[in-house]
Design a protein around this nucleic acid. Structure first.
Lengths: 226, 226
DNA sequence: GTCAATATTATTGTATGACAGCCTGTTCGT
DNA sequence: ACGAACAGGCTGTCATACAATAATATTGAC
């Protein structure tokens, strides 16, 4: 047994989907922007077949909207949809945190604590990019520790859609600081294996996050500049 | 303005996806069965392009699993996955019922009551098919009344995956009766606009449903016949 | 006769080219 | 300036092709 392949090699289409996803999440492709198949093909050096299948996948994640006979555009998240997203997020992250407390090993809890530390220290220096990376790492550990692939998948999708908003954390420095503080408390509850408390704190945290995000959206929508 | 088209005409690929979905949900395609592209093409009279794109869509809903270089099979839901599905379902239907109580108009509540009546009466005569149809109708009203498209979409997907189990309601007659009784109480709470109670009852209901389903799965897995 | 090596086949994964149909913007006639 | 014909771009779908891979059948050794 030379090699145990655990991670299935991704298809070309998976790779393409990943690249497009990243371009959207990173803000390189902006909401409302058309995604023209030919351009994506040239940009990625693959055929329309692969691009189209990748787009179907991303579409079902809600990152892309398909206008009939017009083609795909980067999804534009309305205020209503944003509200819906946050409601679902609250519900599912509540579940996730509860499962994590119930199921995660002490090592996983420790890894989560470390990830939080990294996160809060990257916050100190500027570079909002690495802050988001650290936050992603934090969530990855949380979702893995749940041992529930369904909630994991759904929350990954939800998080991508939240990134699409790109109004939350970035715009309000105060909110980042408060958010980190809230997460510290959540972490404490997790470390103390206090299920109820962790869930409650997570829900409050997301309630606050939602308020901030929705306020930012309202500002955006009121502002003609977009 | 002769006609206000509200419902976008479905693409060919959407139609194909719908047909395949239906074939899976109805049990015509059984878990583990290979879905060979050529056969689907012939069966539906469309090209591989359309079939493949439809399969991508269904795959991301969890109804189909893609084996690398082997192609898609109807998803086989393991006990673990079933547990995960029910945990998520509990969480999201809790949210759904809460939103419905908060937001649904009196007309919608009444429609829900009617749908339940239909459901419980179809239960009296045999025909488990129409019972499931009536149950679908009930849920459609519930999800529409939520005014949260995100939870709606996710629960549709979850319900499809639950159908895939096909061990829940059908196998145990007692369970159907008890389930209907539980739903009656949920409905009562909804009609009374008692949010807390409705959510709690729904969670209990799904807890019971999960127990029954998991027990049936354990029986299935213990039985070599499959 | 059994097992390993090899050939065969079936099917996917991807690319290419084609074309009708739908939008959009433009030009042209009036 | 206003609406109608026109042109271009893009999607939606089909057909075809072919390499890569997995499953199956076949051969051959012992």
């Amino acid at each position: 047994m030379e090699e145990m392949r655990v991670v299935a090699q991704p298809n070309l289409r998976e790779l393409v989907a990943g690249r497009i996803r990243q371009a959207i999440s990173s803000g390189r492709f902006k909401p409302g922007q058309r995604l023209i198949e030919r351009e994506l093909c040239e940009m990625l050096g693959v055929s329309r077949t692969s691009v189209r299948e990748a787009l179907r996948e991303i579409e079902s994640e809600g990152l892309v909207t398909n206008l009939p006979n017009r083609g795909p555009i980067v999804a534009m998240v309305s205020r209503e949809t944003a509200e819906s997203i946050y409601q679902v997020r609250m519900s599912l992250e509540g579940l996730a945190v509860r499962l994590f407390v119930q199921r995660a090993s002490d090592e996983e809890v420790q890894a989560l604590a470390l990830a939080f530390k990294t996160m809060s220290s990257t916050r100190a220096r500027g570079s909002s990019l690495t802050y988001l990376d650290a936050k992603s790492a934090f969530y990855r550990i949380l979702l893995d520790g749940c041992r529930n692939t369904v909630v994991s998948e759904m929350l990954k999708s939800i998080h991508n859609r939240v990134h699409l908003l790109r109004v939350t954390s970035l715009s309000q420095k105060d909110r980042i600081r408060a958010s980190t503080e809230e997460m510290r408390h959540i972490l404490d509850a997790i470390v103390g294996r206090d299920e109820q408390k962790a869930v409650k704190l997570m829900e409050q945290h997301l309630e606050n996050a939602a308020s901030a995000a929705l306020a930012a959206i309202d500002a955006r929508d009121a502002n003609p500049a977009g």
